[in-house]
């Protein structure tokens, strides 16, 4: 009977879909939204939704790069600091009269540079990613404090602020548009492009990837540069959105992004994960946070609940895997 069901291609596809992490999270998210709307109808109001989505933009843009890194079996702890430094130096350059496109370009270049340095230290000197990017996290944040003098930088040119506050699509703020476009394109590429798929081979079995003719070092360095670029981009967008670069921006962002990706199916061991999954992980976390505030629960519970969600996700994954592997 069960065998007959398995023979049915369409059914098999549905079962396979339900097996996917993305599907499970989506299910939880939909349940959460229904529950929350039922309890607090104002959750579905436009300002409330816009606030949720806006709070997700920085996280989701960085999650793209972080997911690709996790897939290739590594990660970057310095993204929160890069996020802050790029926003700050762009703001400083703008205040000194540099034209906006140039300031943005330089800010992005700094992000790429930080990523390149991370990648080269890790691949060429073979220092592990945790130590390298932990050091870089401190170094970059320190650099940001020095150049900003420890002060927030505001009163930025209107032309720049328009980049973060305008609405290319009427009714939807630019940061949301930019992050959605980036997510859609990158998710597709990571699934389907031969170049990006190399990361799955590297994370799955690095030695095997080398023997398969994949230039592992080059791909890894590229991935670090990409996450640096995306972190800087997010930092600049958020600076424009708020019209000010904050010195505390991006603190703890790296762990939030990694947590979301893990909840979404990525693994610190590499070889697994999708950008859509990571995005859904981030959405789930932000719905949990919104529900705590909306339902009037003591906000001190936020960290506790997020930590519990992460543990639950990995535990569910481990039990699921055990069950699947059991009939060897």
């Amino acid at each position: 009977m069960v065998d007959k069901l398995r023979d049915n291609a369409a059914l098999r596809r549905i079962v396979a879909l339900a097996d996917h992490r993305e599907f499970m999270i989506l299910y939880i998210i939909v349940l959460g939204i229904i529950g929350l709307t039922y309890a607090k109808p104002e959750f579905l109001s436009k300002p409330s939704l816009a606030a949720v989505m806006l709070s997700l933009t920085a996280q989701s843009i960085i999650a793209i790069g972080m997911t690709i890194l996790l897939v290739s079996g590594t990660f970057d702890l310095s993204v929160g600091s890069t996020f802050a430094l790029a926003g700050t130096v762009t703001a400083i350059w703008l205040r000194s009269g540099m034209p906006a496109p140039m300031a943005i370009g330089f800010g992005l270049a700094i992000g790429i540079l930080i990523g390149l340095v991370n990648g080269l230290i890790i691949t060429e000197l073979r220092i592990n990613a945790f130590i390298t990017t932990l050091g870089m996290m401190g170094l970059v944040r320190g650099l940001m404090m020095v150049v900003s003098g420890g002060r927030n930088i505001s009163e930025l040119p209107a032309s720049f602020n328009a980049f973060g506050q305008g609405e290319l699509i009427p009714g939807v703020q630019n940061p949301i548009v930019i992050s959605i476009v980036l997510i859609v394109v990158s998710d597709f590429l990571l699934r389907r492009s031969r170049f990006f798929r190399q990361s799955y081979y590297i994370g799955g079995n690095e030695a095997a990837a080398i023997l398969s003719g994949i230039n592992v070092k080059r791909v890894k360095v590229f991935n670090f540069a990409l996450v640096g670029f995306l972190a800087a981009l997010a930092g600049i967008i958020i600076t424009a959105r708020f019209g000010s670069a904050s010195t505390t921006a991006g603190k703890g962002l790296e762990l939030k992004v990694i947590s979301a990706a893990i909840i979404g199916g990525a693994s610190l061991k590499g070889g697994a994960g999708t950008i859509l999954g990571s995005l859904l992980g981030a959405v789930l976390m932000s719905i949990i946070i919104s529900s705590i505030t909306l339902l009037g629960i003591d906000p001190n519970w936020v960290d506790f609940v997020i930590g519990a969600a992460l543990l639950l996700a990995v535990m569910a994954d481990a039990t699921g895997r055990k069950a699947r592997e059991a009939p060897g």
Partner: peptide, 16 residues
Amino acid sequence: LSLSPNLSVAENIFAH
């Protein structure tokens, strides 16, 4: 073995 366990037979045979 120079294979990536998570990837499909097809993607392993045609790696890269």
